[in-house]
Simulated scan of single mutants.
Amino acid sequence: MTKPTTIARCLALASVTGACGGDPAPAPSPEAALSTALRPRQTPAYYVAQANLYFDTLDTRADPAIVPSYSARVARWEWPPWYLLTGYERMQMITGTRLALSVEPSTVPTRDCRAFPVQPFARCRISFQYARGPCPIFEEFTFNDQGEMTFIEAWSDQPGMRPTEDPADPWAEGPSVHRLSTRVPGLGSATGLIVPTAEWMTAAAARDPELADFVRRTQSFYRSWAQAYADAGPTAFPRGCGWTQAPTP
């Protein structure tokens, strides 16, 4: 019979190595790294310029042919009242954004984009201008080692909808920030590629319901987006932009 002290030692070892009996746990795949494992490889001005190029794609005054440097599997996640996964993969991001601009024309006259030494490397406080009024947004951009955007995350800049409600943390740098980008495995690899079907993604999603929802939506992007759009209903813009009037039919 195994002595209690032996069992205790084994459990203690398992808590550190993930194994009992002295065999170390397999090393995590470098492809599964989180975005916070990366450090900036570009200048601060580069990250700010890329963020502004992104907002140019949503500004009717800009050249639609000029787009940011997107990763092949770039993703855009927009928290409610918006439609969650609203962009996935480079070509869909480009064509989908152009379509959105044609349906709901906007300019982005107010922009304050800044670079940070930790991911997300670019963060912006901006305001869209629609025919119905302004729409303040907080948006973040994650990059890979090649300087490509790998993940875009947006929140309405309204009470109760921001990544943090700490008034002393306007750039979401503190411990109370709720974001998805830093929980997506793969964004911390050199290429920052999202691999929804990888074993390490499945394992992480099993522990994180929001990540699991993201992964599910990547597998049926258009259907998931259409359902989210229908669920949000006609009040998404008034709620997300802080408009008090009902939407124009």
Results as ranks from 00 to 15, higher is better:
221 F>V: 11
212 A>S: 15
10 C>G: 01
73 R>D: 14
12 A>C: 10
34 L>P: 05
232 A>E: 08
159 P>A: 01
194 I>F: 13
202 T>F: 01
242 G>R: 01
69 S>Q: 13
202 T>I: 13
150 T>S: 01
130 Y>E: 05
138 F>K: 02
92 Q>Y: 14
192 G>I: 01
143 F>K: 01
13 L>H: 07
53 L>M: 07
20 C>R: 11
21 G>C: 04
186 G>V: 04
228 A>S: 15
35 S>V: 12
199 E>A: 12
47 Y>G: 05
15 S>C: 05
126 I>H: 07
107 T>D: 04
101 L>D: 09
20 C>K: 09
21 G>T: 07
190 A>C: 00
29 S>T: 09
19 A>S: 06
155 W>E: 04
70 Y>T: 03
182 T>K: 02
168 A>W: 01
214 F>D: 10
120 P>W: 07
191 T>K: 04
12 A>N: 00
228 A>H: 06
156 S>V: 04
43 T>V: 10
177 V>A: 04
213 D>A: 15
218 T>E: 14
77 W>P: 06
248 T>R: 11
184 V>C: 00
139 E>K: 13
221 F>W: 13
164 T>P: 01
222 Y>V: 15
227 Q>F: 10
229 Y>A: 08
77 W>Y: 13
184 V>E: 09
78 E>D: 11
108 V>T: 09
176 S>N: 03
207 R>I: 02
195 V>E: 12
172 A>F: 02
12 A>E: 13
109 P>A: 02
84 L>S: 09
237 F>I: 15
14 A>D: 06
13 L>R: 12
245 Q>L: 00
43 T>Q: 14
132 R>N: 02
149 M>S: 01
47 Y>F: 13
60 T>P: 02
177 V>L: 06
122 A>H: 00
10 C>V: 10
39 R>Q: 07
219 Q>N: 15
222 Y>C: 09
79 W>S: 02
188 G>H: 03
115 A>H: 12
179 R>E: 14
52 N>V: 00
244 T>A: 09
214 F>L: 13
44 P>C: 03
51 A>E: 04
131 A>L: 07
153 E>I: 08
248 T>W: 07
169 D>Y: 01
121 F>G: 00
25 A>L: 10
58 L>A: 14
232 A>Y: 05
244 T>E: 15
33 A>V: 07
3 K>N: 03
145 D>G: 02
89 E>S: 11
190 A>I: 05
138 F>V: 08
45 A>E: 14
77 W>T: 02
22 G>N: 11
58 L>H: 14
34 L>W: 04
109 P>V: 11
197 T>K: 03
96 G>H: 03
91 M>L: 03
70 Y>V: 03
244 T>W: 04
236 A>R: 15
185 P>W: 07
243 W>P: 03
243 W>K: 11
80 P>H: 10
201 M>Y: 01
231 D>C: 13
69 S>H: 12
217 R>A: 10
184 V>Y: 04
203 A>R: 12
42 Q>G: 02
16 V>D: 08
156 S>Q: 08
191 T>S: 07
